[in-house]
Design a protein around this nucleic acid. Sequence first.
DNA 1: TTCATGCTTCGATGGTAGCCGAAGCATTGG
DNA 2: CCAATGCTTCGGCTACCATCGAAGCATGAA
Lengths: 221, 221
Amino acid sequence: MVASLVGDPARANMLTALMNGRALTASELAQEAGITPQTASSHLAKLEAGGLVEPEKQGRHRYYRLTDDDVAGVLEGLAGLAARTGHMRVRTGPKDPALRRARICYDHLAGDLGVQMLDSLRERHLVRQRKQEIELTAEGERFLAKHLQISPDMLSHPRRPVCKACLDWSERRHHLAGTLGAAMMQRFAELKWAARDPTPGSRVVNFTRTGEKQFAALFGK
Amino acid sequence: MVASLVGDPARANMLTALMNGRALTASELAQEAGITPQTASSHLAKLEAGGLVEPEKQGRHRYYRLTDDDVAGVLEGLAGLAARTGHMRVRTGPKDPALRRARICYDHLAGDLGVQMLDSLRERHLVRQRKQEIELTAEGERFLAKHLQISPDMLSHPRRPVCKACLDWSERRHHLAGTLGAAMMQRFAELKWAARDPTPGSRVVNFTRTGEKQFAALFGK
DNA sequence: TTCATGCTTCGATGGTAGCCGAAGCATTGG
DNA sequence: CCAATGCTTCGGCTACCATCGAAGCATGAA
Protein backbone atom coordinates (compact mmCIF):
# COMPACT_ATOMS: atom_id res chain seq x y z
CA MET A 1 0.00 0.00 0.00
CA VAL A 2 1.20 3.43 -0.88
CA ALA A 3 0.35 5.09 2.42
CA SER A 4 2.50 2.72 4.44
CA LEU A 5 5.41 3.58 2.18
CA VAL A 6 5.01 7.25 2.98
CA GLY A 7 4.31 6.43 6.59
CA ASP A 8 7.81 5.46 7.52
CA PRO A 9 9.78 8.48 8.81
CA ALA A 10 12.93 7.69 6.89
CA ARG A 11 11.09 7.30 3.61
CA ALA A 12 9.02 10.40 4.33
CA ASN A 13 12.22 12.39 4.75
CA MET A 14 13.52 11.08 1.46
CA LEU A 15 10.33 11.98 -0.33
CA THR A 16 10.35 15.41 1.25
CA ALA A 17 13.86 15.94 -0.01
CA LEU A 18 12.65 15.08 -3.49
CA MET A 19 9.70 17.45 -3.33
CA ASN A 20 11.65 20.22 -5.03
CA GLY A 21 11.49 18.15 -8.19
CA ARG A 22 15.17 17.52 -8.48
CA ALA A 23 16.72 14.09 -8.57
CA LEU A 24 19.06 13.04 -5.77
CA THR A 25 21.45 10.12 -5.49
CA ALA A 26 20.85 7.21 -3.16
CA SER A 27 23.57 8.30 -0.77
CA GLU A 28 22.36 11.89 -0.74
CA LEU A 29 18.94 10.61 0.19
CA ALA A 30 20.45 8.42 2.87
CA GLN A 31 22.14 11.44 4.35
CA GLU A 32 18.94 13.46 4.19
CA ALA A 33 17.07 10.74 6.02
CA GLY A 34 19.82 10.20 8.55
CA ILE A 35 20.31 6.50 7.78
CA THR A 36 23.06 4.34 6.33
CA PRO A 37 23.28 3.62 2.60
CA GLN A 38 22.24 -0.01 3.10
CA THR A 39 19.02 0.97 4.77
CA ALA A 40 18.37 3.67 2.21
CA SER A 41 18.85 1.19 -0.58
CA SER A 42 16.18 -1.02 0.89
CA HIS A 43 13.79 1.91 1.26
CA LEU A 44 14.39 3.14 -2.24
CA ALA A 45 13.70 -0.29 -3.67
CA LYS A 46 10.35 -0.27 -1.92
CA LEU A 47 9.51 3.24 -3.05
CA GLU A 48 10.38 2.25 -6.59
CA ALA A 49 8.23 -0.86 -6.40
CA GLY A 50 5.39 1.30 -5.16
CA GLY A 51 5.77 3.64 -8.09
CA LEU A 52 6.56 6.69 -6.00
CA VAL A 53 10.07 7.30 -7.29
CA GLU A 54 11.92 6.54 -10.49
CA PRO A 55 15.62 5.73 -10.74
CA GLU A 56 18.00 6.96 -13.37
CA LYS A 57 21.43 5.44 -13.68
CA GLN A 58 24.25 7.81 -14.34
CA GLY A 59 27.77 6.47 -14.02
CA ARG A 60 28.09 4.88 -10.65
CA HIS A 61 25.36 7.03 -9.23
CA ARG A 62 21.71 6.26 -9.07
CA TYR A 63 19.55 9.32 -9.17
CA TYR A 64 16.04 9.14 -7.82
CA ARG A 65 13.19 11.52 -8.53
CA LEU A 66 9.47 11.56 -7.78
CA THR A 67 7.60 9.70 -10.50
CA ASP A 68 5.41 12.62 -11.49
CA ASP A 69 3.31 15.52 -10.27
CA ASP A 70 0.52 13.25 -9.12
CA VAL A 71 2.83 11.79 -6.52
CA ALA A 72 3.93 15.24 -5.44
CA GLY A 73 0.31 16.32 -5.23
CA VAL A 74 -0.67 13.46 -2.96
CA LEU A 75 2.34 14.15 -0.74
CA GLU A 76 1.29 17.76 -0.47
CA GLY A 77 -2.21 16.68 0.44
CA LEU A 78 -0.85 14.50 3.22
CA ALA A 79 1.35 17.32 4.46
CA GLY A 80 -1.68 19.57 4.45
CA LEU A 81 -3.66 17.19 6.63
CA ALA A 82 -0.71 16.75 8.95
CA ALA A 83 -0.21 20.49 9.30
CA ARG A 84 -3.90 21.00 9.99
CA THR A 85 -3.95 18.77 13.02
CA GLY A 86 -0.60 19.92 14.29
CA HIS A 87 0.66 16.40 13.80
CA MET A 88 3.72 17.36 11.90
CA ARG A 89 6.08 14.68 10.80
CA VAL A 90 7.71 12.58 13.44
CA ARG A 91 11.26 13.47 12.67
CA THR A 92 11.26 17.08 11.52
CA GLY A 93 14.90 17.87 11.15
CA PRO A 94 17.56 17.36 13.75
CA LYS A 95 16.96 17.96 17.41
CA ASP A 96 20.41 19.27 18.18
CA PRO A 97 20.30 23.10 18.13
CA ALA A 98 23.86 23.32 16.82
CA LEU A 99 22.89 21.07 13.95
CA ARG A 100 19.84 23.17 13.22
CA ARG A 101 21.89 26.33 13.14
CA ALA A 102 24.74 25.31 10.84
CA ARG A 103 25.65 21.97 9.39
CA ILE A 104 27.09 20.33 6.32
CA CYS A 105 24.63 19.25 3.66
CA TYR A 106 26.70 17.12 1.23
CA ASP A 107 29.47 19.69 0.99
CA HIS A 108 27.74 23.02 1.53
CA LEU A 109 26.26 25.04 4.34
CA ALA A 110 22.82 24.14 5.62
CA GLY A 111 20.65 24.99 8.57
CA ASP A 112 19.45 28.37 9.73
CA LEU A 113 22.59 30.12 8.49
CA GLY A 114 22.50 28.40 5.12
CA VAL A 115 18.93 29.48 4.50
CA GLN A 116 19.73 32.97 5.72
CA MET A 117 22.64 33.20 3.31
CA LEU A 118 20.56 32.31 0.28
CA ASP A 119 17.86 34.71 1.43
CA SER A 120 20.41 37.49 1.57
CA LEU A 121 21.91 36.65 -1.82
CA ARG A 122 18.50 36.68 -3.40
CA GLU A 123 17.38 39.86 -1.72
CA ARG A 124 20.46 41.75 -2.85
CA HIS A 125 20.14 40.46 -6.41
CA LEU A 126 23.43 38.61 -6.29
CA VAL A 127 21.58 35.56 -7.52
CA ARG A 128 18.34 35.25 -9.39
CA GLN A 129 16.04 32.43 -8.40
CA ARG A 130 13.13 31.29 -10.47
CA LYS A 131 11.37 28.35 -8.93
CA GLN A 132 14.12 25.85 -8.21
CA GLU A 133 16.65 27.30 -10.60
CA ILE A 134 19.26 29.68 -9.33
CA GLU A 135 21.50 31.82 -11.50
CA LEU A 136 24.46 33.93 -10.51
CA THR A 137 24.14 37.57 -11.63
CA ALA A 138 26.99 39.77 -12.87
CA GLU A 139 26.69 41.68 -9.62
CA GLY A 140 26.95 38.38 -7.80
CA GLU A 141 30.14 37.47 -9.61
CA ARG A 142 31.73 40.77 -8.59
CA PHE A 143 30.59 40.25 -5.02
CA LEU A 144 32.14 36.78 -4.84
CA ALA A 145 35.42 37.91 -6.34
CA LYS A 146 35.69 40.89 -4.04
CA HIS A 147 34.71 39.37 -0.72
CA LEU A 148 35.50 35.70 -1.05
CA GLN A 149 38.04 35.50 -3.87
CA ILE A 150 35.88 33.13 -5.80
CA SER A 151 36.05 33.36 -9.59
CA PRO A 152 33.50 31.84 -12.00
CA ASP A 153 36.02 29.50 -13.63
CA MET A 154 36.55 27.77 -10.32
CA LEU A 155 32.94 26.79 -10.36
CA SER A 156 32.45 25.01 -13.65
CA HIS A 157 32.02 21.27 -13.42
CA PRO A 158 31.02 18.73 -16.06
CA ARG A 159 27.96 17.41 -14.33
CA ARG A 160 27.24 19.56 -11.36
CA PRO A 161 25.38 22.85 -11.57
CA VAL A 162 27.02 26.00 -10.25
CA CYS A 163 23.95 26.97 -8.25
CA LYS A 164 21.26 24.71 -6.97
CA ALA A 165 18.45 25.14 -4.52
CA CYS A 166 18.56 22.51 -1.84
CA LEU A 167 15.60 22.00 0.45
CA ASP A 168 16.77 22.54 3.98
CA TRP A 169 16.09 19.66 6.31
CA SER A 170 15.29 21.67 9.39
CA GLU A 171 14.12 24.94 7.89
CA ARG A 172 12.07 23.44 5.09
CA ARG A 173 13.27 26.22 2.84
CA HIS A 174 16.02 26.41 0.29
CA HIS A 175 19.68 26.92 0.90
CA LEU A 176 22.43 27.19 -1.68
CA ALA A 177 23.99 24.04 -3.08
CA GLY A 178 25.95 23.35 -6.27
CA THR A 179 29.60 24.06 -6.87
CA LEU A 180 29.12 27.60 -5.62
CA GLY A 181 27.64 26.43 -2.36
CA ALA A 182 30.53 24.04 -1.95
CA ALA A 183 33.12 26.67 -2.86
CA MET A 184 31.70 29.14 -0.38
CA MET A 185 31.71 26.58 2.40
CA GLN A 186 35.28 25.67 1.56
CA ARG A 187 36.25 29.33 1.61
CA PHE A 188 34.65 29.81 5.01
CA ALA A 189 36.84 26.99 6.25
CA GLU A 190 39.98 28.41 4.65
CA LEU A 191 39.30 31.83 6.13
CA LYS A 192 38.83 30.13 9.48
CA TRP A 193 35.34 31.52 9.79
CA ALA A 194 33.96 28.07 10.39
CA ALA A 195 35.01 24.45 10.65
CA ARG A 196 33.33 21.11 10.72
CA ASP A 197 33.01 19.68 14.17
CA PRO A 198 35.97 17.36 14.84
CA THR A 199 33.70 14.65 16.21
CA PRO A 200 33.90 11.81 13.69
CA GLY A 201 30.83 11.77 11.50
CA SER A 202 29.36 14.91 12.94
CA ARG A 203 27.75 17.26 10.47
CA VAL A 204 27.80 20.25 12.78
CA VAL A 205 29.61 23.35 11.54
CA ASN A 206 31.07 25.56 14.24
CA PHE A 207 31.58 29.24 13.47
CA THR A 208 34.39 31.16 15.13
CA ARG A 209 33.65 34.47 16.76
CA THR A 210 35.20 36.49 13.96
CA GLY A 211 33.66 34.17 11.42
CA GLU A 212 30.24 34.83 12.87
CA LYS A 213 30.84 38.58 12.55
CA GLN A 214 32.15 38.44 9.01
CA PHE A 215 29.32 36.18 7.96
CA ALA A 216 26.76 38.51 9.49
CA ALA A 217 28.38 41.49 7.77
CA LEU A 218 28.05 39.81 4.39
CA PHE A 219 24.77 37.98 4.78
CA GLY A 220 23.10 39.43 7.86
CA LYS A 221 19.55 40.61 7.85
CA MET B 1 2.22 11.18 10.78
CA VAL B 2 -0.94 10.92 8.79
CA ALA B 3 0.36 8.51 6.17
CA SER B 4 1.32 5.90 8.72
CA LEU B 5 -2.24 6.03 10.04
CA VAL B 6 -3.58 5.22 6.60
CA GLY B 7 -0.80 2.72 6.05
CA ASP B 8 -2.09 0.08 8.40
CA PRO B 9 -4.34 -2.40 6.55
CA ALA B 10 -6.99 -2.52 9.24
CA ARG B 11 -7.27 1.25 9.41
CA ALA B 12 -7.22 1.52 5.64
CA ASN B 13 -10.18 -0.83 5.46
CA MET B 14 -12.07 1.26 7.98
CA LEU B 15 -11.37 4.45 6.09
CA THR B 16 -12.39 2.85 2.82
CA ALA B 17 -15.66 1.80 4.39
CA LEU B 18 -16.22 5.42 5.40
CA MET B 19 -15.46 6.80 1.95
CA ASN B 20 -19.08 6.93 0.94
CA GLY B 21 -19.62 9.58 3.58
CA ARG B 22 -21.91 7.61 5.84
CA ALA B 23 -21.09 7.27 9.51
CA LEU B 24 -20.55 3.77 10.88
CA THR B 25 -20.41 2.46 14.42
CA ALA B 26 -17.21 1.17 15.97
CA SER B 27 -18.35 -2.44 15.78
CA GLU B 28 -19.44 -2.12 12.18
CA LEU B 29 -16.01 -0.78 11.35
CA ALA B 30 -14.41 -3.61 13.30
CA GLN B 31 -16.33 -6.09 11.18
CA GLU B 32 -15.41 -4.23 7.99
CA ALA B 33 -11.75 -4.50 8.92
CA GLY B 34 -11.99 -8.04 10.17
CA ILE B 35 -10.69 -7.35 13.65
CA THR B 36 -12.04 -7.51 17.17
CA PRO B 37 -13.74 -4.52 18.80
CA GLN B 38 -10.82 -3.97 21.17
CA THR B 39 -8.39 -3.61 18.32
CA ALA B 40 -10.79 -1.43 16.39
CA SER B 41 -11.20 0.81 19.39
CA SER B 42 -7.47 1.37 19.54
CA HIS B 43 -7.31 2.14 15.84
CA LEU B 44 -10.23 4.54 15.97
CA ALA B 45 -8.63 6.43 18.83
CA LYS B 46 -5.55 6.92 16.71
CA LEU B 47 -7.49 7.96 13.66
CA GLU B 48 -9.38 10.46 15.79
CA ALA B 49 -6.16 11.83 17.27
CA GLY B 50 -4.84 12.22 13.75
CA GLY B 51 -7.89 14.19 12.74
CA LEU B 52 -8.99 11.74 10.07
CA VAL B 53 -12.28 10.72 11.64
CA GLU B 54 -14.76 12.32 14.00
CA PRO B 55 -16.89 10.47 16.52
CA GLU B 56 -20.51 11.14 17.36
CA LYS B 57 -22.08 9.58 20.39
CA GLN B 58 -25.58 8.31 20.01
CA GLY B 59 -27.00 6.16 22.76
CA ARG B 60 -24.57 3.39 23.41
CA HIS B 61 -23.21 3.58 19.91
CA ARG B 62 -20.32 5.60 18.70
CA TYR B 63 -20.61 6.66 15.12
CA TYR B 64 -17.50 7.57 13.20
CA ARG B 65 -17.28 9.55 9.98
CA LEU B 66 -14.49 11.07 7.94
CA THR B 67 -13.68 14.53 9.26
CA ASP B 68 -14.35 16.36 6.00
CA ASP B 69 -13.98 16.33 2.24
CA ASP B 70 -10.28 17.17 2.42
CA VAL B 71 -9.62 13.89 4.13
CA ALA B 72 -11.69 12.08 1.55
CA GLY B 73 -9.79 13.86 -1.19
CA VAL B 74 -6.41 12.81 0.12
CA LEU B 75 -7.62 9.24 0.48
CA GLU B 76 -8.79 9.37 -3.12
CA GLY B 77 -5.37 10.54 -4.15
CA LEU B 78 -3.69 7.68 -2.33
CA ALA B 79 -6.12 5.20 -3.81
CA GLY B 80 -5.40 6.66 -7.23
CA LEU B 81 -1.67 6.15 -6.84
CA ALA B 82 -2.21 2.64 -5.54
CA ALA B 83 -4.51 1.75 -8.42
CA ARG B 84 -2.01 3.07 -10.93
CA THR B 85 0.76 0.73 -9.88
CA GLY B 86 -1.49 -2.29 -9.59
CA HIS B 87 -0.94 -2.30 -5.87
CA MET B 88 -4.64 -2.05 -5.27
CA ARG B 89 -6.21 -3.18 -2.08
CA VAL B 90 -9.48 -5.02 -2.37
CA ARG B 91 -11.79 -3.26 -4.75
CA THR B 92 -11.07 -0.38 -7.03
CA GLY B 93 -13.06 2.63 -6.06
CA PRO B 94 -16.41 2.75 -4.29
CA LYS B 95 -18.98 0.01 -4.61
CA ASP B 96 -21.98 2.34 -4.59
CA PRO B 97 -22.89 3.02 -8.25
CA ALA B 98 -24.15 6.51 -7.41
CA LEU B 99 -20.77 7.30 -5.88
CA ARG B 100 -18.95 5.98 -8.90
CA ARG B 101 -21.07 8.08 -11.22
CA ALA B 102 -20.78 11.50 -9.57
CA ARG B 103 -19.31 12.62 -6.30
CA ILE B 104 -17.50 15.46 -4.59
CA CYS B 105 -13.70 15.38 -4.45
CA TYR B 106 -12.60 18.27 -2.20
CA ASP B 107 -14.94 20.79 -3.87
CA HIS B 108 -15.18 19.66 -7.48
CA LEU B 109 -16.89 16.97 -9.52
CA ALA B 110 -15.40 13.49 -9.58
CA GLY B 111 -16.47 10.07 -10.80
CA ASP B 112 -17.57 8.97 -14.23
CA LEU B 113 -19.15 12.33 -15.04
CA GLY B 114 -16.14 14.28 -13.80
CA VAL B 115 -13.78 12.32 -16.00
CA GLN B 116 -16.19 12.57 -18.92
CA MET B 117 -16.36 16.34 -18.52
CA LEU B 118 -12.59 16.79 -18.69
CA ASP B 119 -12.45 14.41 -21.66
CA SER B 120 -14.97 16.54 -23.47
CA LEU B 121 -13.24 19.81 -22.63
CA ARG B 122 -9.96 18.45 -23.90
CA GLU B 123 -11.41 16.94 -27.05
CA ARG B 124 -13.13 20.16 -28.04
CA HIS B 125 -9.98 22.18 -27.38
CA LEU B 126 -11.57 24.19 -24.62
CA VAL B 127 -8.62 23.29 -22.45
CA ARG B 128 -5.14 22.20 -23.35
CA GLN B 129 -3.56 19.51 -21.21
CA ARG B 130 0.08 18.64 -21.19
CA LYS B 131 0.91 16.00 -18.63
CA GLN B 132 -0.57 17.26 -15.37
CA GLU B 133 -0.87 20.87 -16.44
CA ILE B 134 -4.14 22.12 -17.80
CA GLU B 135 -4.62 25.47 -19.45
CA LEU B 136 -7.85 27.18 -20.43
CA THR B 137 -7.91 28.23 -24.10
CA ALA B 138 -9.49 31.42 -25.46
CA GLU B 139 -12.18 29.23 -26.94
CA GLY B 140 -12.66 27.72 -23.53
CA GLU B 141 -13.13 31.10 -21.91
CA ARG B 142 -15.83 32.00 -24.42
CA PHE B 143 -17.51 28.66 -23.82
CA LEU B 144 -17.57 29.14 -20.05
CA ALA B 145 -18.90 32.69 -20.33
CA LYS B 146 -21.60 31.71 -22.76
CA HIS B 147 -22.91 28.51 -21.22
CA LEU B 148 -22.09 28.77 -17.54
CA GLN B 149 -21.64 32.51 -16.93
CA ILE B 150 -18.15 31.95 -15.58
CA SER B 151 -15.64 34.72 -16.26
CA PRO B 152 -11.86 34.36 -15.89
CA ASP B 153 -11.63 36.97 -13.14
CA MET B 154 -13.81 34.80 -10.91
CA LEU B 155 -11.17 32.12 -11.07
CA SER B 156 -7.99 33.85 -10.01
CA HIS B 157 -6.66 32.92 -6.61
CA PRO B 158 -3.37 33.84 -5.01
CA ARG B 159 -2.15 30.33 -4.50
CA ARG B 160 -4.53 27.92 -6.12
CA PRO B 161 -4.25 27.10 -9.81
CA VAL B 162 -7.22 27.69 -12.09
CA CYS B 163 -6.98 24.28 -13.67
CA LYS B 164 -5.43 21.15 -12.29
CA ALA B 165 -5.61 17.48 -13.12
CA CYS B 166 -6.78 15.30 -10.24
CA LEU B 167 -6.48 11.52 -10.41
CA ASP B 168 -9.90 9.95 -10.16
CA TRP B 169 -10.37 7.23 -7.58
CA SER B 170 -12.82 5.04 -9.42
CA GLU B 171 -11.95 5.82 -13.01
CA ARG B 172 -8.16 5.93 -12.65
CA ARG B 173 -8.08 8.85 -15.01
CA HIS B 174 -7.95 12.58 -14.51
CA HIS B 175 -10.82 14.89 -13.73
CA LEU B 176 -10.78 18.66 -13.46
CA ALA B 177 -9.77 20.32 -10.19
CA GLY B 178 -8.56 23.85 -9.37
CA THR B 179 -10.69 26.98 -9.04
CA LEU B 180 -12.34 26.24 -12.36
CA GLY B 181 -13.36 22.77 -11.25
CA ALA B 182 -14.80 24.25 -8.08
CA ALA B 183 -16.56 27.08 -9.92
CA MET B 184 -18.17 24.71 -12.37
CA MET B 185 -19.44 22.44 -9.61
CA GLN B 186 -20.85 25.44 -7.80
CA ARG B 187 -22.56 26.63 -10.98
CA PHE B 188 -24.13 23.23 -11.52
CA ALA B 189 -25.61 23.53 -8.06
CA GLU B 190 -26.86 27.08 -8.62
CA LEU B 191 -28.46 26.08 -11.90
CA LYS B 192 -30.12 23.19 -10.06
CA TRP B 193 -28.53 20.72 -12.40
CA ALA B 194 -27.08 18.82 -9.51
CA ALA B 195 -26.95 18.83 -5.73
CA ARG B 196 -24.99 17.05 -3.07
CA ASP B 197 -26.96 14.26 -1.49
CA PRO B 198 -28.76 15.59 1.59
CA THR B 199 -27.65 12.64 3.70
CA PRO B 200 -25.24 14.14 6.22
CA GLY B 201 -21.69 13.52 5.14
CA SER B 202 -22.58 11.86 1.88
CA ARG B 203 -20.32 12.71 -1.03
CA VAL B 204 -22.79 11.58 -3.68
CA VAL B 205 -23.83 14.21 -6.20
CA ASN B 206 -27.35 13.75 -7.58
CA PHE B 207 -28.15 15.20 -10.98
CA THR B 208 -31.69 16.33 -11.74
CA ARG B 209 -33.35 15.14 -14.90
CA THR B 210 -32.91 18.48 -16.66
CA GLY B 211 -29.41 18.79 -15.21
CA GLU B 212 -28.50 15.46 -16.71
CA LYS B 213 -29.72 16.62 -20.09
CA GLN B 214 -27.97 19.96 -19.98
CA PHE B 215 -24.75 18.34 -18.81
CA ALA B 216 -24.92 15.80 -21.60
CA ALA B 217 -25.60 18.56 -24.12
CA LEU B 218 -22.46 20.39 -23.02
CA PHE B 219 -20.14 17.53 -22.24
CA GLY B 220 -21.75 14.44 -23.78
CA LYS B 221 -19.83 12.11 -26.00
C1' DT C 1 -32.01 -3.06 40.74
C1' DT C 2 -30.28 -6.35 37.50
C1' DC C 3 -29.02 -7.72 33.05
C1' DA C 4 -27.49 -7.03 28.25
C1' DT C 5 -25.16 -4.42 24.88
C1' DG C 6 -21.46 -1.45 23.06
C1' DC C 7 -17.22 0.23 23.68
C1' DT C 8 -12.76 1.09 26.08
C1' DT C 9 -8.58 0.03 28.91
C1' DC C 10 -5.00 -3.14 30.46
C1' DG C 11 -1.52 -6.64 29.88
C1' DA C 12 0.90 -10.01 27.35
C1' DT C 13 2.31 -11.95 23.00
C1' DG C 14 4.03 -12.42 18.44
C1' DG C 15 5.09 -10.95 13.86
C1' DT C 16 6.87 -7.58 11.08
C1' DA C 17 9.96 -4.27 9.44
C1' DG C 18 13.55 -0.94 10.17
C1' DC C 19 18.24 -0.90 11.08
C1' DC C 20 23.26 -1.69 10.61
C1' DG C 21 27.79 -4.56 9.90
C1' DA C 22 29.97 -7.19 6.59
C1' DA C 23 30.53 -8.67 2.20
C1' DG C 24 29.60 -8.53 -2.81
C1' DC C 25 28.91 -6.21 -7.55
C1' DA C 26 29.40 -2.43 -10.74
C1' DT C 27 31.53 1.64 -12.51
C1' DT C 28 35.11 5.00 -12.82
C1' DG C 29 39.81 6.59 -12.60
C1' DG C 30 44.59 6.00 -12.38
C1' DC D 1 45.46 -4.13 -14.11
C1' DC D 2 44.38 -2.30 -9.11
C1' DA D 3 42.16 0.94 -6.04
C1' DA D 4 38.31 3.88 -4.81
C1' DT D 5 33.58 4.99 -4.90
C1' DG D 6 28.62 4.09 -5.01
C1' DC D 7 25.20 1.01 -4.34
C1' DT D 8 23.14 -3.52 -3.28
C1' DT D 9 22.50 -8.04 -0.86
C1' DC D 10 22.64 -10.88 3.18
C1' DG D 11 22.14 -12.03 8.04
C1' DG D 12 21.03 -11.07 12.57
C1' DC D 13 19.35 -7.98 15.98
C1' DT D 14 15.93 -5.01 18.05
C1' DA D 15 11.96 -2.21 18.68
C1' DC D 16 7.65 -1.22 17.70
C1' DC D 17 2.84 -2.10 17.18
C1' DA D 18 -1.11 -4.71 15.84
C1' DT D 19 -3.63 -8.23 17.97
C1' DC D 20 -6.57 -10.56 21.31
C1' DG D 21 -8.25 -12.22 26.16
C1' DA D 22 -9.94 -10.44 30.21
C1' DA D 23 -11.75 -7.00 32.84
C1' DG D 24 -13.80 -2.35 33.45
C1' DC D 25 -17.25 1.56 32.29
C1' DA D 26 -21.20 3.47 30.29
C1' DT D 27 -25.86 3.35 28.45
C1' DG D 28 -30.36 1.49 27.89
C1' DA D 29 -33.91 -1.94 28.79
C1' DA D 30 -36.60 -4.90 31.88
